[in-house]
Design a protein around this nucleic acid. Structure first.
Lengths: 138, 138
DNA sequence: CTATTTGCAAACCCTTTGCAAAAAT
DNA sequence: ATTTTTGCAAAGGGTTTGCAAATAG
């Protein structure tokens, strides 16, 4: 939680309450869409501007702290990237869940680096399932 | 090429020249953005409407023939999904390249299915590299 | 002949931009 | 004191929608 501040300082970004609120919300692993994030932030900052949210998200994306996950069902969702992990996405409702990177994932990365002769700086794995706890039997 | 027609018939989609043109272009593995696809199609159908392109893309996405790849650099790109494969994306210029799914990828999928107790219907793997052939030394 | 698709134009988002005031370092 | 950030309102751009005419099956 407070260990997000060093991340900001390293990147010479100012620690504003609005920015911290965005990071705290993303850190809860809820994978919100932009408007869900906006709604959530308004609970803390009723007068925050959507523009401020977007500006912050862009800065956080550029510096690599935040990524966008496209779900092919519903709006893209936001993800904070502290350690490597995969996503399980429900095709039906678009909800996102984190999943572990097991050895085989790192193995694939190594093999692909060898094969392509490139340094892979990030590996994204997305597993699609046809329904999830939130939308069973639909 | 012509083996795309059965895909359409299976899904009860009509085989229109515009639709076939979209599929043929996507089948060339160029991973175009929507506007690149539109430019390309106009060479065959100068009077095609952008709305037609979007309507087709939506139908093709819904039926699972086409997917969108978000690159976190530049516009999202389109991908036709005939067999499982990974993508190597250049962080700098956003270009997309196909890569092989080796055993380790299928192993990861199997392990994740066991762990999450869900049937994974699609596994997307995206490897990010910091520069590629098109933008070396930037 | 019926159902789908196309193309046009307008509507509709979502996202970005410009600028002055406020806040952070 | 300097630089970044915020918030507002307006602009911008990509995507969708409605409808009539054309086309596919």
């Amino acid at each position: 939680m407070t260990d997000l501040i060093p991340y900001l300082k390293e990147r010479r970004l100012k620690v504003t309450p609005q920015r911290m609120s965005i990071l705290k919300i993303l850190n809860r692993c809820t994978h919100p869409s932009v408007d869900e994030l906006y709604e959530e932030i308004q609970k803390d900052f009723p007068s925050i501007s959507l523009a401020t949210v977007y500006k912050n998200l862009n800065i956080l994306k550029e510096t690599g702290m935040v990524f966008e996950i496209s779900t092919n069902a519903g709006k893209p969702r936001l993800d904070i990237n502290i350690y490597p992990h995969a996503h399980i996405i429900c095709k039906h409702c678009g909800s996102v869940e984190d999943a572990e990177f097991m050895k085989s994932a790192y193995l694939y990365q190594k093999e692909l680096e060898k094969k392509s002769m490139r340094k892979i700086t990030k590996l994204d794995i997305t597993a699609t399932v046809d329904s999830c706890g939130r939308c069973q039997n639909l």
